[in-house]
């Protein structure tokens, strides 16, 4: 049971993020929602690679025959985190620019584009 805990947390994080995107109207909160989904997915990736009782996957230091956790998901997660930083930064930058133009971060009041 306790081994499944990371996956439960993933589901909670992704669900919270989706709820934020649907229910919230503040641009910063929308960015936070994306961040939550991203954390959920990243946690999912890392949890996938965990082997029970595994040691860090460094061949030179490992005793022979010991189980190692999978290295690939860690590399994937690292890449995904870097990409996430870039998207978050870009979105926050746009939020700042929108705030300068409109004086508000409320998505309901920022409606130049419709139809």
């Amino acid at each position: 049971m306790i081994g499944n805990l990371p996956f439960v947390v993933c589901v909670i994080l992704v669900a919270l993020g989706l709820w934020t995107l649907v229910a919230k109207r503040n641009l910063i909160k929308l960015v936070i929602g994306i961040g939550l989904i991203e954390s959920g997915v990243n946690l999912f990736l890392v949890s996938l690679g965990y082997v029970h009782g595994g040691i860090p996957p460094i061949y030179t230091y490992a005793p022979s025959g010991a189980p190692m956790v999978l290295p690939t998901p860690q590399a994937l997660t690292l890449t995904s985190i870097v990409i996430g930083v870039a998207t978050t930064a870009l979105m926050l930058a746009f939020a700042v620019v929108i705030y300068r133009h409109k004086g508000t971060l409320d998505a309901r009041k920022i409606r130049d584009l419709r139809g």
Partner: peptide, 13 residues
Amino acid sequence: PEAAFKTMLLFSV
């Protein structure tokens, strides 16, 4: 910026 924010949200998801 508004169009970009909207698009970025969709692309991120």
